[in-house]
């Protein structure tokens, strides 16, 4: 089954920046789908389109068969690039408040996550280090029992141990039948978790397929394949 389908998706911002220039792809159910690309490739823009945060200029995108803009996707949970929460709130209060508006939030799932990440719930959100803030954000997002997780750089600022936990969490979500969209600029992470991937550069798709196919066609590692694609070689 298809979870996301993008057809000739175009996004031009008000300031004239062409972030996406006609992108086509599909995300299948139960797969880990990576979005790769150098900085400014349009990764974050694409993720925002998936969640209805921004309106496509042209073309279309549908998630669970519906247009995400402007009301978002109830059955999805988003970890954006900036892991910003309400800094003035106590962490425990932040969890309660998040639970009050996040669809399908489960406290028992949250406790599981918090334990797994050895997350401490004392003090204020604003007192957390960057890494702990990311942990809290990821824990909150995964505490929602939804069918799609959209993660923009979910390991930002994390130490190798927690990073490993997050990657395991992503892999395990497949066992629950969940679909994950994962954007990162750390190729080694993506290589470890993803089934399918797209590589974007300046708003255009350079590759759209499985990781295995890419390695088999290029007969090389992901990072070499990525570099040669971004430099302009064809498959």
């Amino acid at each position: 089954m298809m979870v996301i389908k993008a057809e000739s998706l175009v996004k031009i911002y008000h300031n004239g920046v062409k972030a996406l220039k006609g992108v086509n792809f599909e995300v299948k159910e139960g797969r880990i789908f990576a979005v790769l690309g150098p900085n400014g490739a349009g990764k974050t823009t694409l993720l925002k389109c998936m969640l209805g945060m921004i309106k496509p200029t042209d073309g279309s995108i549908s998630v669970f068969g519906k247009t995400p803009f402007p009301d978002g996707v109830k059955n999805a949970s988003f970890v954006p690039e900036g892991k910003n929460l309400y800094e003035w709130l106590k962490i425990s209060k932040m969890v309660d408040i998040f639970a009050s508006f996040a669809p399908n939030f489960s406290f028992s799932r949250f406790e599981g996550m918090a334990k797994r990440f050895s997350l401490k719930l004392d003090g204020k959100v604003g007192e957390l280090s960057q890494g702990n803030r990311t942990k809290l954000y990821v824990s909150l997002a995964f505490a929602q029992d939804v069918n799609l997780y959209v993660l923009d750089e979910p390991t930002w600022g994390l130490d190798p141990i927690v990073r490993h936990e997050v990657l395991s969490l992503v892999k395990e979500s497949v066992l629950e039948g969940k679909t994950v969209v994962y954007s990162s600029h750390i190729l080694s992470e993506v290589e470890e978790v993803c089934d399918d991937l797209i590589i974007l550069k300046e708003g255009e798709l350079l590759y759209n397929g499985t990781l295995d196919d890419l390695k088999e066609k290029k007969k090389t590692t992901l990072s070499n394949a990525f570099l040669s694609l971004v430099k302009g070689d064809s498959l």
Binding site: G30, I32, S168
Partner: peptide
């Protein structure tokens, strides 16, 4: 597939394949 995926810490879809 589940146990294998958890033991090897590999994406379950890969084991299934």
């Amino acid at each position: 597939i589940r146990k294998m995926a958890l033991d090897l810490n590999v994406n379950p879809n890969t084991i299934a394949k």
